[in-house]
Amino acid sequence: MGQIELKQVSKSFGNVEVIPPLDLIIEDGEFVVFVGPSGCGKSTLLRLIAGLEDVTGGHVLIDGKEATLTVPAKRGLAMVFQSYALYPHMSVRKNIAFPLRMAGLDKADQNERVTQAAEVLNLTDYLDRKPGQLSGGQRQRVAIGRAIVREPAAFLFDEPLSNLDAALRVGMRLEISELHKRLKTTMVYVTHDQVEAMTMADKIVVLQAGVIEQVGSPLELYQRPRNTFVAGFIGSPQMNLIDGPEAEKLGAHTIGIRPEHLEISQTEGAWKGKVGVSEHLGSDTFFHVQSSASPEPITVRATGERAFHYGAEVWLSPRPEHLHRFDSKGLRIE
């Protein structure tokens, strides 16, 4: 079991309130991602769940039981840190066995569980090495190994992939997702990368300045962002947000249209513009178009190898069913 509930949890450092009172339920077996720009309080929130920070107010419940004052070790949670936090003086085997040793398991049990975890994580050949002799990806796996041997109620991940290079990151992302499918244990995962959030999460929690902006499945967030912040944060390339006359025509303060929901044509359309820089990714092409609709260039995503030379005159048309409308406070208008 691994249901985590936050009730009116708040956190202040001195006089600075980094997290105003907040409610959140993480269901058993769910993969929940906290995402937001740096400094939004997502790591602090994770550390409050872990018990590495004291809450200033409110309650933390784990499986329905009060855990607000429980020390980290007794919460039955395991954490994977950003820096991996491996013990440099211990071998991989000892690193993974450490939580078991602390729990007082006998040697045979420790060995069995370490061997199992090493097999799952492809670490069998490295068990007697020190962390210093491992690559970034291997260290990451050791950190995960140390977490899974405990068979925790939930895993907490604090930006675990941010120290890996791009190629490894994609691989580890899949491995962690795979692990979740197999173990079916609750996972709480903190990242600033919305791609990680979209690809891994069952449920995304978007945070800004300690406040939850929206909670929902990746598709809900993509299709129905609750406000301009979520609209701009989720999706890559970013949604085009347009203020002014074009928005007013549709009875909104701001309208939003994703690059993939714009048609680009040489002959006709709603907004006239000039093509600036084009980015060719092979499968897709992004055009940055300076148009009459807004002072900012509008990003358009086209499939395949369509090409417009620099300065070419084009027409853009948003697909009406994909237009998002927001009021002057930035909130979605249905």
């Binding site: 070790a73 007794k74 820096s83 936090a85 013990y87 450490f98 939580p99 602390m102 729990a103």
Partner: peptide, 23 residues
């Protein structure tokens, strides 16, 4: 010594004495 290592030990169930002794 990175603070995260000590926190990791705490999460792994080490009490203050074990944290000082083993890590």
């Amino acid at each position: 010594i990175p603070g995260e290592i000590l926190e990791a030990a705490r999460m792994d169930g080490a009490n203050l004495r074990e944290e000082v002794l083993y890590v």
